[in-house]
Amino acid sequence: MNIPSDLKYTTTDEWVKVEGNTAIVGVTDYAQSQLSDIVFFEFQVEIGDEVKKGGVIATLESVKAAADVNAPVSGKVIARNESLTEKFELVNSDPYGEAWMLKIEMSNPQELDTLMDATAYQKYCEEREH
C-alpha cells in the first residue's frame, strides 16, 4: 500500500497535498484498490463552485461499486483535472500523481488539522483490513 508521507488523508480515503493556500485533492491507493478497475469518473462540481468539507465533488465507479469523492476541505474550486473523464484508468495506475482531481482554494485552512497524517492513515487502513 502506497501512502506518501507528505500528504494529508481523510477517513473517506481522499488525499490532500497543500501548496500555499491551495489544496490538491485525489483518492488514495487504498481507495482505488478497494474499488478495483475504475470504469467511470465524473465531476460533481464546476470550476468556481464553493465546496464544503465533506461535500461530494466527484463520483467513481467500478463494475461492482460506486464511490463518492468528498471535499477534504472547504473552499473554491479553481482547477479540475479534465483528462480524468476520459482516462479514468489513471485513478488505478497513478492515484497520487496524474489522477489528481481538483484544486481547491481553501477558505478555512484550519480544517487541515482535522485530517490524518500518513502514519495515522496507514493504521486506519490496516484496521479496516481485519
Partner: peptide
C-alpha cells in the same frame, strides 16, 4: 448487465 454501479442495489439512496 453493465453500468450496474449506478443502480439502487449499489448506490442505495444515491
Amino acid at each position: 448487465l453493465t453500468l450496474t454501479a449506478r443502480e439502487q442495489h449499489i448506490r442505495r439512496e444515491k
